[in-house]
């Protein structure tokens, strides 16, 4: 949990913010983030085909609705190309292809592109293309479960865990796997 994370959530969830502020006020003497009694984690939901997935909000840099992809030849099929984000070159990952999520419309680079979420870990940044951006939710850390054992191996690698939200099972993307550098060893 980064320090600015509660603030980000708060912007979108005013009520939650008030709670946090209240708790903070009550425990001003305490140190920083110990304020919330239950440890929670913020998740950004997104849809791929018929299924819903999530990434940790602390890994999300920004959401793009309009962007222009430049194709790069001879890259794996799940790399759509690169985009220019204010001077920084960022790869575009077709996460559905990567995770083998079925029943999804083909991405047409010349047509209207679906939304993309720029995600980052310590070493890599990429924009992942999703069918629909969902809510940002705050779930207790305790409610996170290991990935379903029924997932096949290739798919399972890309899922770090799962969580039930409103009786819906949501897979949490394993970003370290999704963001594995490409072509490092030649």
């Amino acid at each position: 949990m980064t320090p600015e994370q509660p603030a980000m959530l708060a912007m979108l969830q005013a009520q939650h913010m008030r709670e946090v502020l209240k708790e903070r006020a009550e425990s001003l003497a305490q140190v920083g983030e110990e304020a919330s009694a239950v440890e929670t984690v913020g998740l950004l939901l997104f849809r791929l085909g018929e299924e819903w997935y999530a990434v940790g909000i602390d890994r999300v840099r920004e959401i793009l609705n309009e962007y222009e992809v430049t194709r790069i030849p001879r890259v794996p099929d799940f790399i759509l190309g690169v985009i220019n984000v204010r001077g920084e070159i960022v790869s575009v990952t077709d996460i559905a292809t990567l995770m083998r999520v079925p029943s999804r419309t083909e991405v047409d680079l010349d047509g209207v592109l679906p939304s993309a979420v720029i995600v980052a870990n310590e070493s890599c940044v990429s924009a992942i293309v999703v069918d629909e951006i969902g809510d940002i939710v705050d779930v207790p850390v305790d409610s996170l479960e290991p990935p379903l054992s029924t997932l096949d191996k290739t798919q399972g690698e890309y899922i770090a865990g799962s969580v039930y939200i409103d009786a819906r099972l949501i897979g949490i993307a394993n970003l370290d796997k999704v963001l594995e550098p490409i072509g490092e060893n030649g």
Binding site: I72, R74, I79, N84, T93, G183
Partner: peptide, 22 residues
Amino acid sequence: LGSHLRRVDNTAGVTILGAGEV
């Protein structure tokens, strides 16, 4: 090519042209 694409066959990098085209 950014931090994700470390090495791509045939492509050494990219440039941004005046019009913003990559």
